Simulated assay, not measured.
Amino acid sequence: MTSPTAPRTATVIGCGTRGLAVAFALRGAGAQVQLLDRDPRVVARAQELGAGSLWLPGLPAADVVVVATPAATVVDVLYEAQARGLGRAYTDIAATDTKEAVAAEARLRGCDLLGYVPGNPLIDPGHVPHRPTTAANGPFTGRIWILCPYQDADPTATAAVDALVRLCGAHRRDLTPAQHDRAVAALTHTPTPGVAAPAGCPSGPLRPARSGPDGRAGTAEQPRR
């Protein structure tokens, strides 16, 4: 099986530190990036830095939509983005140890879980770029990027998010939301040198899984809808 095609178009919602990091990685790989943020001044600054262009109504659905807002707003933003048909696949990158609560709220809210793959790249907050990067020199290079795909998630959506992770130079690791929360909580209280080191791989549950025949990380227990 061939590797998933890297996204050619993407919409990043939320132009804070993590949103900019993803936008820069996408731009560095040649993708067209559209930007959305509740504060027009933040979008304008992101444009000045070369992170992408302002999203405008009428644009075709993006290959992938990245929700880069705080965890407390992820579900609201996701629901609205899906209702507006902004993309063909959706993910979030909220740095939180409450993915299980986010996943449950998304289910209750009526979000399209088939096209949504929760995520959390474990990046060093002190390593934030201010220009487009590549998979070889970005803040995600060699890092763990946790995905929590639903058991019956659309394979096309999962492949699109997997391609995003690869494009950013990160290592995909599949966990259930509950496993994610326990692992991240442990990291928060007990720093793991491997996570902080750009080229390192953390031990325990966050070690990058061995790639399977299709190049994806090894399987993990999948969250159910």
Results as ranks from 00 to 15, higher is better:
residue 1 M to I: 07
residue 1 M to H: 09
residue 3 S to V: 11
residue 4 P to K: 07
residue 5 T to E: 10
residue 5 T to M: 01
residue 7 P to A: 13
residue 8 R to T: 13
residue 11 T to P: 06
residue 13 I to Q: 07
residue 13 I to K: 04
residue 13 I to W: 03
residue 17 T to M: 14
residue 18 R to G: 07
residue 22 V to L: 13
residue 26 L to G: 04
residue 28 G to D: 03
residue 30 G to A: 01
residue 31 A to F: 05
residue 34 Q to T: 15
residue 39 D to R: 13
residue 40 P to V: 08
residue 42 V to Q: 15
residue 42 V to L: 04
residue 43 V to P: 00
residue 43 V to K: 00
residue 44 A to W: 04
residue 46 A to W: 07
residue 46 A to V: 08
residue 47 Q to M: 15
residue 48 E to F: 00
residue 48 E to M: 05
residue 52 G to Q: 02
residue 53 S to I: 05
residue 56 L to Q: 15
residue 57 P to Y: 04
residue 58 G to H: 05
residue 60 P to N: 00
residue 62 A to N: 02
residue 67 V to T: 14
residue 71 A to Q: 08
residue 74 V to A: 03
residue 75 V to P: 01
residue 77 V to Y: 03
residue 78 L to I: 02
residue 79 Y to P: 00
residue 81 A to N: 00
residue 82 Q to T: 03
residue 83 A to H: 01
residue 83 A to Y: 00
residue 85 G to A: 01
residue 86 L to K: 02
residue 87 G to V: 09
residue 90 Y to W: 07
residue 93 I to E: 11
residue 93 I to G: 12
residue 94 A to I: 12
residue 96 T to R: 08
residue 98 T to L: 13
residue 98 T to V: 12
residue 101 A to D: 10
residue 102 V to S: 02
residue 103 A to L: 03
residue 104 A to N: 09
residue 106 A to Y: 09
residue 109 R to M: 03
residue 110 G to M: 12
residue 111 C to K: 04
residue 112 D to A: 06
residue 113 L to I: 13
residue 116 Y to E: 06
residue 116 Y to K: 05
residue 116 Y to D: 05
residue 117 V to T: 14
residue 117 V to L: 14
residue 120 N to P: 05
residue 122 L to N: 09
residue 122 L to P: 06
residue 123 I to M: 14
residue 126 G to Q: 12
residue 127 H to A: 14
residue 128 V to F: 00
residue 130 H to A: 12
residue 131 R to F: 06
residue 132 P to W: 02
residue 132 P to M: 03
residue 134 T to Q: 04
residue 139 P to R: 07
residue 141 T to C: 11
residue 142 G to P: 01
residue 143 R to F: 09
residue 146 I to E: 09
residue 147 L to G: 00
residue 149 P to V: 03
residue 150 Y to I: 00
residue 151 Q to H: 10
residue 153 A to E: 07
residue 155 P to Q: 08
residue 158 T to C: 09
residue 158 T to S: 07
residue 159 A to I: 02
residue 160 A to M: 08
residue 161 V to I: 15
residue 164 L to P: 11
residue 164 L to A: 11
residue 164 L to I: 11
residue 167 L to V: 04
residue 167 L to Y: 00
residue 169 G to Y: 00
residue 170 A to W: 01
residue 171 H to Q: 14
residue 174 D to N: 13
residue 174 D to L: 15
residue 177 P to V: 11
residue 179 Q to I: 01
residue 183 A to M: 09
residue 183 A to K: 11
residue 184 V to F: 11
residue 184 V to K: 01
residue 186 A to D: 13
residue 186 A to P: 00
residue 190 T to L: 13
residue 192 T to D: 14
residue 194 G to H: 09
residue 195 V to S: 14
residue 198 P to R: 14
residue 202 P to L: 02
residue 204 G to Y: 05
residue 204 G to D: 13
residue 204 G to E: 08
residue 207 R to H: 15
residue 207 R to P: 04
residue 208 P to A: 11
residue 209 A to E: 09
residue 210 R to F: 04
residue 213 P to G: 05
residue 214 D to A: 04
residue 216 R to V: 03
residue 219 T to R: 14
residue 220 A to G: 15
residue 222 Q to L: 15
residue 223 P to D: 07
residue 224 R to E: 11
residue 225 R to I: 08
